[in-house]
Amino acid sequence: MTARSNAEGSEHVRTADALLPGPGQRALRGLALAYVLVLVAIPLATLVVLAFADGPPVFVERVTDEVARDALVLTLGTGVLVGALNVLFGTATAWVLTRYRFPGRGALSALVDLPLAVPTLVAGVMIAVLYGPSSLVGTTFAAWDVEIVFAKPGIVLALLFVTLPFVVRAVEPVLAEIDVAEEEAAIVLGAGPWRVFRTVFFPALLPAALSAGIRSTGRAIGEFGSIVVVAGNIPFETLTAPVYVFGEIESGAPRAAAAVSTVLLVFALALYVGATWIERKVGARHAS
């Protein structure tokens, strides 16, 4: 996107001057930039600086504290698992929603967007109600000695709820854009369903599904509202990093919270950059 814009740069600048009023243009632009700096850059910079304020050894100590380290490992582990499950089930869902014709398809497709609008805390409450220890499902699973809520499966379910739209919405347009003739060509040449998928669909879907899966992992490792309700927050068991951060704030240790936050921030940024890189690369190939 950036490359293309730059190529047309000179043309854009001229039009740009026409769009926001001349004298006020710089002022308004400055306002937008200042807003973003004050609201995002300065607080996050403060967070990172204060995480290291007591020296790197203390920072290391804080993030390798047994409880903190375990929370980080759990967060990353569930995040990656949720990303993988999203790639799998999200692609399948997008496939069914774009390629099948059945009554209620429109409503189902709209529902997939619901997690974008439902407060994540409410999502957590919903999961706790259905799968909680005193619910019908919860008692059934308890009979087999399987705990869902206040255990890891609850965390995964909550994360799947809040990240549900990511892969579905990324894959759908790609699926819709694939030339039907390409699929038909493979069939006429004698390819079976699996072969058709591998040849025509898989290479086209992979980048979109992968980058959206990575984004869902990024979203999952920061998730707080739904986890706080379903996880039970037991150290070494179901205490995730964001909940640990909250606990440290509550117990008056903001710098320990900042240290763990910084680690989370680095992971989140790395995932963000990775997903963006994949999207850029695909975009560049489509353009050529």
Binding site: E182, A185, A186, G190
Partner: peptide, 16 residues
Amino acid sequence: ARARAIGFVFQHYALF
């Protein structure tokens, strides 16, 4: 279609 053993040339090529 898969079992018909027919060659089909599509209007917009439909190359993989």
